[in-house]
């Protein structure tokens, strides 16, 4: 079980694009050589901004709801696991349904893989691999009460997609966490990145 006291905090603005997290992710015991972290560029021609994406571990995971094989399980500690090998039929429903674009159905393996907070580590009190190696702490795994003292921004765990409200275990750091983070496609169309 991952301690409820510990949270995972993502701050894309701190990301320097070093890809340490991408390399480290593959080293975890549950990932078995497959990196499940995404490191995206906003728009290389306009910005140096990069951002890491790990699973947000939703309270009501849309990936699990959309899974026809009932292969995706959320444990009591709020961690949403990769699909169970015997059940997953690699249909890709989870990949296309995730609000945050996280799961990966790897070709050939016939299984969906995703971030599970490096469960072999986090369940025994160690940090996930990405948070262990991130030099700028854009990915931070720490006791929740310590984060307020470490950062000017605050953790936000609610995301709004149209009328759909998604609550998560992991948090994104923002200055004003009182209202959900609105994910509006207009930002991608008008922002120009």
């Amino acid at each position: 079980m991952v301690s409820e006291e510990y949270g995972f905090f993502i701050d894309p603005q701190r990301c320097i694009g070093c890809r340490s997290c991408v390399a480290a992710c593959a080293e975890c015991g549950t990932h078995r050589g497959h990196s499940m972290i995404h490191l995206d560029e906003l728009d290389r021609s306009a910005s140096t901004q990069t951002g890491p994406t790990v699973c947000m571990h939703c309270e009501d995971p849309v990936c699990a709801m959309s899974c026809p094989a009932d292969a995706i399980k959320r444990t009591e500690d709020g961690v949403v696991h990769a699909s169970q090998k015997p059940r997953c039929v690699a249909c890709g429903n989870c990949e296309m349904s995730c609000p945050f674009g996280v799961p990966l159905v790897l070709p050939g393996l016939e299984q969906m893989l995703k971030c599970d907070l490096c469960y072999d580590r986090s369940s025994v009190g160690l940090k996930p691999m990405c948070a262990t190696v991130c030099p700028s702490q854009a990915l931070l795994f720490a006791p929740r009460h310590e984060v307020a003292a470490m950062r000017g921004s605050r953790p936000l765990r609610e995301f709004q997609v149209g009328e759909l409200l998604v609550r998560t275990r992991n948090a994104v750091m923002v200055p004003d966490p009182e209202t959900p983070l609105h994910l509006d496609a207009a930002l991608l169309l008008d922002g120009g990145f």
């Binding site: 901004q49 994406t53 149209g162 994910l183 509006d184 991608l188």
Partner: peptide, 27 residues
């Protein structure tokens, strides 16, 4: 209800753009 204010359904965004949205929204 997962339609964006502009009428685009969230399913019409590729996984990469969904990830970029979080970055953009935080910014």
């Amino acid at each position: 209800g997962a339609r964006h204010p502009g009428g685009i359904h969230h399913l019409d965004l590729c996984p990469r753009c969904r990830r970029r949205l979080v970055m953009g929204a935080q910014s």
